[in-house]
């Protein structure tokens, strides 16, 4: 053979370093792969069946062997067969796919929370403990992690192929995805929704670590302030505490323990206090007026960044008592500093 040894070496190196199957690194990955393999078997079966039919007929009934065609009108039985059998297979796949979808998108209740903000062209991850990462995400293995994600500008999509999960990151609303990593390692993070010039640069690394390594990492990379602490500060500086003080006579409802509960609204409906709901009440308060309160809260649209909103949401989620609110309120009054600026106030 004339292949030069250098070329040969190059080729073998090339081929051995090129995967044809993605790594399975989450609990969902084997399930997704099982369906994927089944689907390929179905495709193979279909192609072989059709190929065999076409090939056999082409050989057996070619003009040389079969000079005169025999006209056949059709066959209801055969039509029914190849309507019902594919339909049955497709419905089976539908059920399987739906089952997998619900597994992928319904997080377990005890999932650890991480927030992600996407913007052209970077991913910011914020851990509740105050660790901030850019184009990277550190997660422990063996523990469900839920990402609550939002975009500051255009549609993005958060994709981790090794975990077989992906979710669109949308401007103006939270979307979530969860996974449970199984293998320590470093995996690709891609933005899969075309988002402008540097779309292909909106990538990053997902580092799955053993719990003890993750503990170490959290300790080393904290910024010193947790998200809830940031949120508390913001809560005070935006003057939220002046109404949401937890006092019975306060102008705003008590926020302690509100997260996750169903709230009766002014218009008679009931709304569930989720992350997205909390965010929306800050931006569009007049659409979320609780029963017995006046629609006097101003909108904070354009005044708080998405990161700030995440801090506030995280703070309200953690809020169990109003003790500290009243503390900060008293301090604020004493020092007479933060008051809402006039343009934030809207006369009813």
């Amino acid at each position: 053979m004339g292949i030069s040894p250098v070329l040969w070496e190059f080729l073998t190196k090339w081929l051995t370093t090129s995967p044809v199957w993605p790594r399975e690194a989450s609990t969902i990955a084997p399930w997704a792969d099982a369906l994927f393999i089944f689907l390929w078997l179905m495709t193979l079966f279909g192609v072989v069946l059709v190929g065999a039919l076409v090939f056999t007929f082409a050989v057996r009934y070619r003009k040389e062997r079969h000079p005169v065609a025999v006209q056949i009108e059709g066959s209801t039985l055969l039509e029914a067969t190849w309507t019902i059998i594919p339909l049955g297979i497709f419905l089976f796949i539908f059920v399987w796919g739906a089952w997998l979808y619900f597994r992928i998108y319904n997080p377990p209740a005890d999932a650890m929370q991480v927030y992600v903000v996407g913007k052209q062209w970077m991913w910011k991850a914020e851990h509740p403990g105050g660790q901030h990462e850019i184009n990277a995400l550190h997660v422990p293995i063996g523990r469900p992690v839920q990402l609550t994600m939002i975009s500051q500008d255009v549609f993005h999509s958060y994709s981790i192929p090794a975990f077989r999960v992906k979710r669109e990151v949308i401007p103006g609303r939270y979307s979530t995805v969860w996974f449970n990593a199984t293998e320590p390692g470093v995996y690709h993070l891609f933005c899969t929704q075309y988002c402008g010039t540097l779309h292909s640069g909106m990538i990053g690394e997902i580092t799955a670590m053993r719990p003890e390594d993750y503990e170490k990492w959290t300790k080393l990379s904290t910024s010193g302030m947790s998200l809830a602490q940031n949120g508390e500060r913001l809560f005070a500086s935006m003057g939220c505490n002046s109404c949401h003080s937890g006092n019975a006579a306060a102008a705003g409802p008590n926020l302690a323990g509100v997260y996750g509960s169903k709230i009766k609204m002014d218009d008679g409906s009931e709304q569930l206090a989720t992350d997205g709901w909390l965010r929306d009440t800050i931006l569009n308060p007049s659409q979320h007026v609780p029963l017995g309160y006046k629609p006097i809260m101003p909108t904070y649209q354009g005044q708080i960044s998405e990161e700030g909103l995440i801090d506030l949401v995280e703070y309200i989620k953690q809020l169990k008592t109003n003790y500290r609110i009243q503390q900060t309120l008293n301090t604020a009054k004493a020092e007479d500093v933060v008051q809402p600026t006039p343009d934030q106030k809207v006369t009813p």
Binding site: N284, P285, S286, Q287, P295, P298, T299
Partner: peptide
Amino acid sequence: FVHPQPGTNEKALSVDMAN
């Protein structure tokens, strides 16, 4: 929409709804 003309019985909208 935030400050309707006095005299009309228009409901004032909050800023976020008026937007």
